[in-house]
Amino acid sequence: MIRIVTLFLFLFMASCSPSAEAPTEKPPSQEEEEAVTLPPEPAPQPEPVVKRMTVGMIGDILLHHPLYTYDTYDAAFQEMLPYFNSIDFLIANQESIPGGVELGLSGYPNFNSPSHIVRDLKKYGVDMISMANNHTLDRGAKGVQRAIATMEQYEMPYVGAYKSYEDRATERIVEVDGITLGIVNYTYGTNGHVVPRDQPYLVNYIEEEAIRQDIRALKEKVDVVIASIHWGIEYQLNESEAQRQVAQIVAEEGAHILFGHHPHVIQPYEKRDNTHIYYSLGNFLSAQQFDSTNIGGIARITIEKTTLDGEVQNVEVLEPEFLPTVVVKENGWNFKIYPLRDRPKAAIYSEQWMLNHIKLPRWSPTVE
């Protein structure tokens, strides 16, 4: 019995073991390996592209005597050149109309400035002139037309005063480093001078509906809207209620930056909703030397635009700053602009007082 069981187990195990002649699996040939289709690699994801630029504005350029007698403004501006160069798009408020010598040069109360102020502003890095202010019509329609001819001669973009209906209808849109800016400019009045009935386009006045319509139209076409507004009460260090009302209109329509001028002194900065408001930048170049009229400054603010695969994802306006400046009278005749920190004894207020008053930081001491 034991032998039968043993034999049975032996036969069963033998039948379960692999045969020596059983086929074995062959490794794939090179042709077979190459025929295998591998899954595709995932496509690279687009990276966001961030572009940055700076926008700035200087305050009032008001050429009293003897400023309108200068043959060149090199000496006045030369200390500011590095700071001008650190701003990608710089606006200036040319308050005294540059009608040129043909109309007779003059100061207060009816200004007329030499045309080469435009030449020198261009030379030192100003990219656009804001023309709507209370002295725009000091020499009437002829003064505006001559000033605009000068702008065109020096290829200086301008806003706020216009030579024709077509000129007024042409939106001021510029592109800087891939970021588009739209600029508007208005004044509270023109010192009693009235535009001719057949030329209502000569200067932009602060009118609520016009402001709203202009900003709305630009917002559809640009990344950032900038308003330059001539307003406020002269020599008052704080904004008026009327300024605040206009600022509210600008903020409601979604303009990003508001640069204010006219009071001849600095007034505080405020952010209202998403609108950065500089109520007054003070005088930049003038012969006014009383109280705080010889101090002013340069506003600078950064714009950052993010795109992804060509589509705009975000536009931010950030880092508002201010550089205090002072106009120094040298040798009894020469008026020259300096950063206030370089001439601290030339003003009745310190740089720190100015920064505290405007409520903004100063630019980095390192000039770009």
Rank of each mutant, 00 (worst) to 15 (best):
L67M: 06
Y338P: 00
E41W: 11
K163Y: 00
E351W: 00
Y154N: 01
F8M: 09
S130D: 10
V50K: 13
A347H: 01
V265P: 07
P27S: 14
R362W: 00
V328T: 04
Y70V: 03
Q289G: 00
V224R: 01
Q352N: 02
V176Q: 07
N133F: 08
P324D: 07
A132D: 03
K142V: 15
I226H: 04
L360T: 12
Q248R: 13
H264C: 13
Q236S: 11
M354H: 00
I295Q: 09
A149V: 00
A217N: 12
A247V: 14
D74S: 06
G178M: 09
A76C: 08
D71W: 02
S106E: 13
T180R: 15
V174M: 12
P40F: 07
L218Q: 12
R139K: 15
L340Q: 11
V159M: 00
H193W: 15
E102I: 08
Q236G: 03
G232E: 15
R52S: 10
I206D: 06
I61W: 14
A20D: 09
I4G: 05
M53V: 09
P39L: 03
P44M: 13
K163S: 07
Q243Y: 11
L90A: 11
F8C: 11
I348R: 12
T150K: 08
V159I: 06
M57Y: 00
L38Q: 14
E102V: 09
Y278D: 09
R272N: 11
